[in-house]
Simulated assay, not measured.
Amino acid sequence: MKEVRLGIVQSAIQIGQVKENLQMMDAMIHQVAQDAPDIIVLPETWNTGFMTGHDLIALADPNGSQMQELLSGWAKKLHVNIVGGSVDIEEHGKIYNRTYVYNREGELVSTYDKMHGFSPAKEDLYFTGGTQVHHFTLDGILCSSATCYDIRFPELIRKAALEGVELFFLPAQWPLLRLSHWKILNQARAIENQMFFCGVNGCGRIGKLPMAGHSLVVDPWGEIQLELDETAAVQTVTIDLEVVADIRAKINVFRDRKPTLY
């Protein structure tokens, strides 16, 4: 057995209410930590809420300093790895939708800037897109992550699988309107890449738009190991990563690929 306990934080972020959002996240992280997870995973843009517009630069965290201090402090105090969802930060006059990952000692182990801005919401006009993938190791497990809309670009996630990633995280603010897409895409990325896929979504509303919630953990066979509903909640689930090696041995799609032909 190669067990990992994941702690999921699904929260209803208030648009532009940074102080309130940080207080809420502090409470939810301490709540889920009571179940002794190995890794706590947060949703997308939990400091500001998912927003665009000129007010964003005033709300984004300068250089990510406050967000890094908080995440590092939580990880060290609770002795837990944290995949910090994503936060809006300002750096050199540009806005990034950034993920910070911390280990149990409170050390920063990786960062990722969301590559694909959601153009229907004009995210690409206000945020600077990332240019690099990231892989990181937590408790000896090779992991990776992307953010929300990135899930619609399978090449990005396939790259992680080809490099041996076993556990993939996707913080998001995905709307209820496309709940079926959310579930199907999470399952598809898990199946086609033969990895565990952990999608942690927001809930509540962005303006008048309801968020889907339904954070979920999917195994490499596409079976859902955990799924929340549409309300704010924390929950833990234990997964066995030996399933990854087993399926990759039984159905070796990576060996059978023909990249010279497509």
Rank of each mutant, 00 (worst) to 15 (best):
M1W: 01
E3T: 15
S11N: 02
I13E: 01
I15M: 07
V18Y: 06
M25I: 15
A33R: 08
A33V: 06
D35Y: 08
A36M: 10
P37S: 09
D38K: 09
V41S: 01
L42V: 02
T45D: 08
G49H: 04
G53H: 06
H54M: 14
L56A: 12
L56W: 01
A58D: 14
L59A: 11
N63S: 10
Q66F: 07
M67W: 01
M67K: 00
E69T: 08
S72H: 02
W74H: 09
K77P: 00
L78R: 05
N81G: 09
G84W: 00
E91N: 13
K94S: 11
N97K: 14
V109F: 04
K114W: 03
F118I: 09
T128V: 05
Q132M: 12
H134P: 06
H135Y: 13
F136S: 05
G140Y: 04
G140Q: 12
I141S: 10
C143Q: 07
R152M: 13
P154D: 11
I157E: 13
I157G: 04
R158A: 11
K159T: 15
A160T: 14
A160W: 11
A160I: 00
A160Y: 13
V165S: 05
L167T: 01
I184P: 00
R189F: 09
A190Y: 06
N193M: 06
F197K: 00
C203L: 05
G204D: 02
I206Y: 04
G213Y: 09
H214F: 07
L216A: 10
L216R: 06
L216I: 10
L216N: 12
V217A: 03
W221H: 14
G222F: 11
T231K: 13
Q235E: 13
T236W: 02
V237I: 13
T238K: 09
I239E: 00
I239S: 02
L241R: 03
R248L: 07
K258Y: 15
K258V: 15
P259H: 06
L261V: 12
Y262V: 12
